[in-house]
Computed example of a mutant assay.
Amino acid sequence: MANSPVKEMEVETSRIIGKLQGKESGPTVIFFGGIHGNEPSGVQALEQVFTEVDKLGIDIRGTVYGIRGNIPALKQEKRFLSFDLNRMWTRKGIDGLKNNHQEERRDEEKEMEEIYRFLKEVLDSKPPPYYFIDYHTTSSQTLPFITINDAMINRKFARLFPVPVILGIEEYLEGPLLSYINEKGYVTIGFESGQHFKEESAANSVAFTWLTMMITGIMEPHPEIDKKALCRQLQASAQGNRNFYEVIHRHKITSEDKFEMILGAQSFEHLEKGTRFARHNGEIISAEKDTILFMPLYQDQGEEGFFLIRKIPKWALRFSAFLRHIRFDNFLTWLPGINRVSERSESLMVNLKVARFFSKPFFHLLGYRERVIDRTHMVLYNRERAAKNSMYEKTSWYK
């Protein structure tokens, strides 16, 4: 079933793609599709899965929602109309919802307010544990992959899927929807299923949806839904790659820049030192050292020309998990120039004179990511301390 093509469907005006409510208690799972309007594969996949659940009469535990993101942009097949809806979920943006008059809001601000109200209602009315999955596609050809904010609950959940996992992108992006939700401590997964408008991308999102529903306990395996076939679908599309990677560079661009990738550069492509792979305002960009290209831009809209990533060794992942388990970061505040922003805070304030003696990877091992820099201090935020691990301890996948 995961290999069947997904037909194009006209975008409806309803925010809710579908809702499944089980008779038995269970988790609450929220899938988002189309936060970017030129990425319809997630919406199409969710439409297909919700239809199949009803057709097959599958019993559900708990609650599942499928949510359309940027409806006006989906209708026009544009990433966004006025603002990038996946860069607006900052504290300033949330406060703006409370202060701006409704008639003054532009398309994405109205979309954001609806989604914000939906999230608040779900968290107030539905029981935990909560899972949030956001579907995306890329403008370049790519393997399917997962992006997560770097907390152990996200790592444990993400490694259950046979695709590569990317850590640390939240350090380079301001205001993604999942970062806002992850700050509350819940499991959040971004799934990039492939290239825009490709049937394989929709099929990958279909497979990911079914697997998520099985892993979370929303449904038992069904005779018509072959779990092994779903895994093979994703594994084949990912070419057997299940590595963890870390983002090490973001090439930022603006709408006024002239940026283009040199034809043929793809996500996850290994670049040798000296390889010419992009042009920015007429100047050639070459690889300064051997590296891996990630999410190169092949569309008009976007704030990132490309990222660079590196593979994380397995020993580093294990060492990181150990340090977090023993809460080694408690000792950091014994050092001069490093203090918690407030008592029991997830954030550290680091004097830049001290920070130069510690590399970024050191703080990354402990779960800290750079959030704000001024002339004298750096603020590091720790997803691990915010994570609601106890909410998931009794689940089958967490053990």
Results as ranks from 00 to 15, higher is better:
residue 29 V to C: 07
residue 71 I to F: 05
residue 14 S to P: 04
residue 131 Y to C: 00
residue 300 D to Y: 09
residue 267 S to M: 02
residue 265 A to D: 04
residue 198 K to G: 05
residue 223 P to G: 06
residue 331 F to H: 02
residue 181 I to W: 12
residue 181 I to M: 15
residue 374 D to K: 03
residue 263 L to P: 03
residue 167 L to P: 04
residue 147 T to V: 15
residue 118 F to K: 11
residue 198 K to E: 07
residue 365 L to K: 11
residue 74 L to G: 03
residue 80 F to Q: 02
residue 284 I to E: 14
residue 128 P to C: 04
residue 37 G to M: 04
residue 186 Y to D: 14
residue 351 N to M: 10
residue 277 F to V: 04
residue 172 Y to D: 06
residue 244 F to V: 09
residue 275 T to F: 12
residue 177 L to W: 11
residue 231 C to L: 12
residue 201 S to Y: 01
residue 258 K to A: 10
residue 384 E to Y: 07
residue 55 K to L: 09
residue 180 Y to V: 12
residue 160 L to Y: 05
residue 268 F to W: 08
residue 308 L to G: 06
residue 295 M to E: 13
residue 197 F to W: 07
residue 281 N to D: 14
residue 109 E to M: 13
residue 76 Q to W: 10
residue 176 P to G: 01
residue 299 Q to I: 10
residue 398 Y to I: 05
residue 139 S to G: 09
residue 46 L to T: 01
residue 54 D to M: 13
residue 252 K to N: 12
residue 56 L to A: 06
residue 110 K to M: 07
residue 313 P to D: 08
residue 147 T to K: 05
residue 92 K to E: 15
residue 42 G to Y: 07
residue 185 G to Q: 13
residue 149 N to H: 12
residue 226 D to C: 01
residue 93 G to K: 00
residue 360 K to W: 01
residue 362 F to H: 14
residue 32 F to C: 09
residue 60 I to L: 01
residue 75 K to A: 03
residue 368 Y to D: 08
residue 42 G to L: 07
residue 188 T to M: 08
residue 344 R to A: 12
residue 221 P to L: 03
residue 92 K to Y: 10
residue 316 A to D: 13
residue 37 G to C: 08
residue 220 E to P: 01
residue 192 E to M: 09
residue 107 D to G: 13
residue 12 E to F: 06
residue 335 L to C: 05
residue 240 G to F: 02
residue 254 T to C: 08
residue 38 N to M: 06
residue 340 R to I: 02
residue 333 T to L: 03
residue 319 F to G: 10
residue 5 P to Y: 11
residue 387 A to M: 12
residue 21 Q to N: 15
residue 202 A to S: 13
residue 91 R to V: 02
residue 189 I to S: 01
residue 68 R to G: 01
residue 6 V to M: 10
residue 154 N to M: 13
residue 367 G to R: 00
residue 344 R to M: 13
residue 86 N to T: 07
residue 205 S to Y: 04
residue 18 G to K: 06
residue 395 T to K: 05
residue 389 N to Q: 11
residue 325 H to D: 15
residue 263 L to R: 13
residue 94 I to E: 00
residue 194 G to K: 02
residue 362 F to A: 14
